[in-house]
């Protein structure tokens, strides 16, 4: 860092405040999700028999959901690129797609949960199902939160009020991609590596 007296208002390397705040929030989210994932990891290693319980989960459905969420990350980042170009209509289109894909993810997840619960695999069934519902539930709540935020941005974009939301699309995007990354790890942790 420079040490001489300068006359700029912010003497350090300027980091946009909103971005710094967002990454602070994400860092706290990483340790939170990380905490439960680390706990799951050690339990899974300690209980080889969870393999058979995990085998009940539907890989095709989860794969479909993975593709949905990955695609929603693409639409989100394209919305951000459209903001950069000042293309209001495209911003609205991409945001709408992101919201729709997020909802698809949650609905598929709900279907999956219903299926498991109907088969008697409830949270208290065993340690594995506790972690399954705990982790996917926490993640689904985060997806829902992202859907709500993106929907608010979508409404603003539809009203052609791009200016005040411009950098919020970037921040919402950071959050959305983070939620995507969590799923990227939950997918192999819970569904793959089963045999």
């Amino acid at each position: 860092m420079q040490r001489e007296a300068t006359h700029a208002v912010a003497p350090a390397v300027p980091v946009p405040a909103a971005k710094l705040g967002m990454w602070w929030f994400l860092a706290s989210e990483i340790v939170t999700f990380g905490g439960i994932i680390v706990a799951y990891l050690v339990f899974r290693l300690a209980h080889p028999q969870w393999l058979e319980e995990a085998a009940h989960l539907s890989v095709p459905i989860a794969t479909f959901n993975t593709l949905v969420l990955l695609t929603s990350s693409l639409t989100m980042v394209l919305a951000f690129a459209a903001v950069d170009r000042g293309d209001e209509r495209r911003v609205a289109t991409w945001l709408a797609l992101t919201v729709a894909l997020g909802l698809v993810f949650v609905l598929v997840k709900a279907y999956e949960w219903r299926h498991e619960i109907a088969a008697g695999r409830v949270p208290g069934e065993s340690g594995f199902w506790g972690f399954y519902y705990g982790m996917t539930g926490l993640h689904a709540l985060h997806v829902l939160g992202g859907v709500v935020v993106n929907a608010c941005l979508l409404i603003a974009a539809l009203r052609r009020r791009l200016e005040p939301i411009a950098h919020r699309v970037e921040m919402a995007g950071l959050y959305w991609h983070f939620v995507d990354i969590v799923w990227i790890f939950l997918f192999p942790l819970l569904y793959l590596s089963t045999h």
Partner: peptide, 26 residues
């Protein structure tokens, strides 16, 4: 996703460390 969609590739050290420090703790 982190490098390109979240633009970590183009960020300063401070942001980078905010992303990496939690992983070290974990």
């Amino acid at each position: 996703v982190a490098l390109y969609y979240m633009h970590l590739r183009f960020e300063q050290l401070l942001i980078y460390s905010l992303a990496l420090a939690p992983l070290i703790c974990l």
